[in-house]
């Protein structure tokens, strides 16, 4: 485990998202509630759409390019579409967002 501080929760608008650049590609951080943040792969498995630009609703995001909907909890595509995005653990400590870089590198490799 090596947790790294990537920013403050208020840097992400409520029901919005921001990205984190990593060597393994782009990770998206979604803020679904006042104190709820999920991290997933930032790239849509359909045609590479930037998921952090999607509309966030409940604990889901809709890809901006062709409206595939993904669960931020399981990473699974919803409904008839088939696909999965990687999900990563996030910790919130005093409003700071912590990502486990060891996990990111491993799963991205």
């Amino acid at each position: 485990m090596s947790w790294i501080d990537v920013g403050h929760i208020d840097d992400i608008p409520l029901r919005g998202a921001r990205t984190v650049k990593t060597r393994g590609g782009c990770v998206a951080l979604f803020r679904t509630g006042e104190a709820e943040v999920f991290a997933t792969s930032g790239t849509c498995p359909h045609k590479g759409g930037p998921l952090a630009e999607g509309i966030v609703h409940g604990r889901k995001v809709t890809c901006p390019l062709h409206n595939w909907v993904f669960s931020l909890e399981t990473g699974e595509a919803q409904g008839a579409d088939e696909g999965r995005i990687a999900t990563y653990p996030v910790r919130i400590e005093d409003g700071r967002l912590m990502l486990d870089t060891a996990r990111l590198v491993r799963s991205a490799a």
Binding site: I4, V6, G7, D11, I12, R18, T19, V20, K21, T22, R23, G24, C26, L29, L97, L99, T101, L104, V105
Partner: peptide, 14 residues
């Protein structure tokens, strides 16, 4: 600034 990534870990992760 909100148009940039919130963080860039490409260096740290190395």
């Amino acid at each position: 600034r909100s148009f940039l990534p919130i963080a860039d870990l490409t260096l740290e992760a190395a």
